[in-house]
């Protein structure tokens, strides 16, 4: 066993080196590093130091002094305090459950919409432009301005609009004579629709661009062989789109976790602004939150990568 490992290591080494010189594989590896050099510099020069600093801040108490700030080591106290705060775990659990059922819905919806928008029909350009709007509306300054509105809700996540719509529908359904519990489910779905539509702009665009890359000659060939549209979808469209399902799953999870609309980010923001907690608690909160998200991400990637088909 030990010998095997040694041999394997030797073999591995010999893929990159040959008689003390770089082999062909080694040369390719060097070019690979050259291509990802920008990221490597950013990672080592900017990202990792910042993360380490953030972690240092979270284990220290920060006090402002006239010349800057001072750090006092408090160790893992902050993490221990968080465990005492029951609402933190409750909030975390709520966010995570919401994410778990929204993610498949968003991916399914955007996949379906991309297929629809890829067909030829009148007003396709207009429909595509409109479905791209949420990407603009839900970004940066616009969402910020909306959040600060006293009469917010006209646009931000459409809360008021939805509330009115779903209220009407609920009274209508109860009038018909459906049981309240069914009505409640329907109205929850209704309120969720806008959230899903507004969160799937990016995903629709990714799927759409992926659909465009499938060569029409593939469909031509299979149709000549007598494949039906249904078979074409499962044998060509779905496998060719599968790498992008993975992309979109990763993006959706990250977006749901880190966007302005994420409830948990708001919790972190408000903790950051409260004097009893302060910034270090906020950072500690976010570190725990990201550990959880990373676990979910790993789970989804594992599940979906079984479906993925790559050309090579």
């Amino acid at each position: 066993m030990k010998k095997d490992k040694k041999e394997l290591a030797k073999l591995k080494e010999s893929t990159y080196f040959h008689k003390g010189h770089l082999s062909l594989m080694g040369k390719r590896a060097v070019s690979g590093y050259l291509f990802i050099l920008p990221f490597l510099i950013g990672l080592i020069g900017i990202f990792i130091p910042s993360i380490i600093d953030a972690f240092i801040y979270s284990t220290h108490e920060i006090t402002n002094t006239p010349t800057g700030y001072e750090l006092t080591y408090v160790g893992m106290d902050i993490f221990a305090n968080i465990r005492k705060e029951g609402w933190f775990l409750w909030e975390l659990q709520r966010t995570v459950t919401k994410m778990l059922y929204n993610i498949p819905l968003i991916i399914f919806f955007s996949f379906f919409m991309a297929l629809l928008l890829n067909q030829k029909f009148k007003g396709r350009t207009a429909a595509r432009a409109i479905l791209f709007l949420p990407v603009i509306i839900a970004s940066g300054c616009i969402i910020q301005v909306e959040n600060s509105n006293a009469l917010a809700g006209l646009m931000e996540a459409g809360d008021t609009v939805d509330a009115i719509n779903s209220m009407d529908i609920t009274t209508f359904l109860i009038g018909i004579g459906l049981s309240p519990s069914i009505c409640e489910t329907i109205s929850t779905v209704m309120t969720n629709i806008y959230a899903i539509i507004s969160q799937s702009g990016v995903q629709i665009l990714i799927f759409l661009s992926a659909l465009q890359t499938i060569s029409p000659s593939l469909y031509e060939a299979s149709s000549i062989e007598g494949a039906t549209g249904w078979e074409n979808f499962w044998k060509i469209t779905f496998p060719m789109l599968s790498p992008y399902i993975l992309t979109n799953a990763v993006y959706t999870i990250i977006d749901a976790a880190t966007s302005h609309t994420s409830t948990f980010m708001n919790v972190i923001d408000s903790v950051n602004n409260q004097s009893i907690y302060g910034m270090e608690t906020a950072i500690a909160f976010s570190l725990i939150f990201f550990a959880v998200i990373a676990a979910i991400l790993g789970l989804f990637v594992l599940l979906i990568s079984r479906l993925v088909f790559y050309y090579d």
């Binding site: 590896a29 910042s50 980010m265 972190i268 950072i283 976010s286 991400l297």
Partner: peptide, 24 residues
């Protein structure tokens, strides 16, 4: 390209996405 530590480095790409800018 195939090169040593590729998996780890790509994991770091995802990690940079995962950490919201506010934190760092």
């Amino acid at each position: 390209f195939k090169f040593p530590l590729k998996g780890l480095l790509f994991g770091m790409v995802i990690f940079t996405l995962l950490v919201p800018p506010t934190t760092i």
